[in-house]
Structures are given as C-alpha cells and as structure tokens.
Amino acid sequence: MWALFLENCRYVLRSKMVVLVILFSTLVHLSGLKLINHLTVSIQEVVTVMGPKEAIRVGFYIQLFTALSIASVYGVWMAPYAHRGERSLLTHVLPVSKVYFPLCYGLCCGLLLIINEVILLMSFGWVMGFSFYSSDIFPWGSLIKTCMFQTLCLEVLMLSLALSSLVVGQINTVFLGATSLFVMQILGTFSHFFSKDPKFSLFTLKGLFVFVYEKLPPIGDFIFDFNLLSKGESVSFENLGLWMIWWLIICFLFVFKIRYPSNIRGAEG
C-alpha cells in the first residue's frame, strides 16, 4: 500500500500537478481575497465596505472552487491513468490488493486538497497580515470543520468521476459530471422546499421524491451544508453519514470495475 501510494505521489509530482495546483490556487486565492478585502459596495445609496469577516466567507467559497477543480482533474484524468487501455492489464497483475487503489487515490487527492487549504490559510495572512490569525474574528473552528467536510465530499466526487471515466470515458465524464452536479443542486433545492411544506407527507409524489433523494449522495445539500459550516454552525449527521456511505459504495464499485478490466479487448484473439 505504501509503495503504491508513493508511486501515485511520484505521478502527481512528475505530471506537474502539484506545481499547477500551487500556482492556480495561489493566483485565485490571492487575487480573490485582495479584490474583496476593503471592497466598497453601493446598492441604492447604501454603502457597505467589505472587511476581513466578509473576506473570510468569500475565501471559503474561492477555496471551494479551486478544490472542486483539483478533485475533478484528479478524478477524471489522474486516478484512472493506470486502469485505462492496455495499461490496465499491467496494473491488474500487480501483486497488490485492488482495495488499495481507491485508498491511495483518496490519499493523494487528499494531499492536493490539503495543499489548496494551506494556500487559503497563507493567503489570509498575505492579504490581511499574519497577525490576523491570532485575532478574535479568525474562524479557526469553522475553517477546520469546513475543510474536513469539503474534503470528504470531494473525495466522493473524485472517485465517482474516476469510476465514470473508466466506464464511459473521460470527455463524457466531464459533461456527465457537470450535468449531474447541476441537476442534483436543483433537486436539492426542491427537496428543501418540499420538506418545509407544512402539508408535506411521505405518501405523495413529492414525498416519494424526497424519500428517494434523501438516499442519494447529498450533492444538492452540499452548498447549504458548506454555508452552515462556514458560518460556524454544524451540519446534520444524516448528511455526513450519507457521504461516508456513498464513499464506501463508490470505493466498492471502483474496485469491482478494476477487478475485471475485460472491456479492453486486444488486437488479438
């Protein structure tokens, strides 16, 4: 497992993914935070000056955008590398349990996400001064909780994209993934409204929809949960549990998929 993990880290390094992550993340975080800090917004003669508190909230969302990009690239292109085409045959005969593959990919992607999160943290210091970390308004608790929650969700997303890449191909996965995120987000919003309806009952079409939706990965709830955590509130254990269950399900499906790389038919026989 350790050798496999180190090998994946070498791939991440040699493919220049780390350099790209650092450059991309630093550029987006720094420019985003600099823009928002001390920004003056005037709406209908009400003038608001954005301060560090607002910059932190925006920083969380900037970080989400970069983390989503990193997890998507890793999931669509990097994790399936050893399992695509004829290379999958060489990977298949490696004397290592197939279970270790998703775990290694998860660890590698996790490392990249941690780099991204460290860059967010450093960007706060660069833009607002390093003494900002010790100030009362710096939300250490919500920052750590948000990053942990987001890492779990993005691990599920990364592995789902990797699995989809192996099944339908990489280009299809990009569009399928984007469409699924969009649709699930809309469904999540509907589900929120439906369940708040005082006449809500499980024995209706709306009820059935909510019942089924609640068993799916809570992608639609993700942005609501993320928002709650970034404000220092907590999220439901149900959603956390669902994310963990879906991570296990996707891991199992991924292992099942790489167990029989039979769809790759050689030129011969």
Binding site: E7, Y11, R14, R87, L89, V96, A267
Partner: peptide, 25 residues
C-alpha cells in the same frame, strides 16, 4: 489473487508501462 500474482509474470501484447517512470524506477 494478489498473492498469486507474486508468482506470475505477464507481458501483455500492447501495454505501455507508466510513462512518468524510468525503466529502473
């Protein structure tokens, strides 16, 4: 099984080893 693959060597027809590695690595 993975244990069995320790005792089997396989050279597929068209496979390419990981391209980011050297032969020694």
């Amino acid at each position: 099984s993975s244990r069995l693959f320790k005792r089997i060597g396989f050279a597929p027809e068209d496979a390419t080893p990981p391209e980011y590695l050297t032969a020694r690595e």
